[in-house]
């Protein structure tokens, strides 16, 4: 796609672009801001400035034109066009219709949403193959997954809450507290998830008693894996610890 040869441009760019265009088409509802209605393939956008509001129903259309991905929103009273090269750089926008002074305020937001949408599509197309490797248990590290709400909520959803305690921890003492939980529940439940809130937030994951992921959020920063282990040692004060265990096979619960 970045090839400068003529054949490269002709052969590769449209192919990559059309895949992207399809992805953008699928993700319009998720990606665009200001959506306040959906009806028969059309979307309503509401934009306001001070006390004034502008609403219109649009038919979205995504196409590839001159190596650019173009999102056209044709409305009853107005139209919006967003366009960018496949890498999402240099987004351009155009608005035609009434109340331009309201719309113009929001065009930058629409542009950056379109840019993120393109970037997200590119990323998901690249990652599609990579996640398959990740789902095998052998040597897996779920530290980064633990930062994701969706991942954690799925574990909680498929688990039983085994403990919910408030513990006063001395510096360096948290690990021995955690060990006690692992000893108590680690043999019965193949998968253990331990979360803590207090001076810092931490999330730990164990399979068959062995750590497979650690995440700590403290002082506005995220730490993963070994770095997170170090931070856990520094936690002191009042900590609420919750322990969840799952009897289901870990491979099924921990789908990335």
């Amino acid at each position: 796609m970045t090839s400068k040869t003529l054949s490269g441009n002709v052969r590769d760019a449209p192919k990559a672009g059309s895949g992207l265009a399809e992805c953008v088409r699928e993700k319009i509802l998720e990606g665009l801001p200001f959506i306040t209605g959906i009806r028969g393939g059309r979307i309503q956008l509401s934009l306001s400035r001070m006390l004034f509001r502008f609403r219109d129903w649009y038919t979205p259309n995504v196409k590839v034109e001159d190596d650019r991905i173009v999102l056209e929103l044709k409305g009853d009273r107005s139209s919006i066009v967003l366009a960018a090269p496949p890498d999402g750089s240099s987004v351009s926008s155009q608005y035609k219709g009434p109340r331009g002074w309201i719309l113009r305020k929001h065009l930058p937001t629409l542009e950056s949403a379109f840019q993120s949408l393109l970037q997200e599509c590119r990323k998901s197309m690249e990652e599609r193959s990579a996640t398959a490797i990740d789902s095998t248990m052998e040597g897996a590290d779920y530290s980064r997954h633990l930062a994701r709400v969706s991942f954690v909520s799925r574990i909680v959803l498929k688990s039983l809450m085994l403990a919910n305690d408030e513990v006063i921890v001395r510096k360096g003492g948290l690990l021995s507290v955690l060990e006690d939980y692992i000893k108590e529940y680690g043999t019965k439940y193949r998968l253990l998830y331990i979360s803590g809130t207090g001076p810092a937030t931490f999330r730990l994951l164990f399979v068959d008693g062995k750590p497979v992921g650690a995440f700590v959020h403290t002082d506005g920063r995220d730490y993963y894996g070994v770095e997170a282990d170090d931070k856990i040692n520094e936690i002191e004060g009042l900590v609420r610890i919750k322990v969840y265990g799952s009897l289901e096979p870990p491979e099924e619960v921990l789908v990335a």
Binding site: L29, E30, G31, L32, P33, F34, I35, T36, I38, G41, I43, S46, A113
Partner: peptide
């Protein structure tokens, strides 16, 4: 279209 809107509205 499925009804799934990810972005908030004030």
């Amino acid at each position: 279209m499925t009804l799934k809107v990810r972005n908030p509205v004030v």
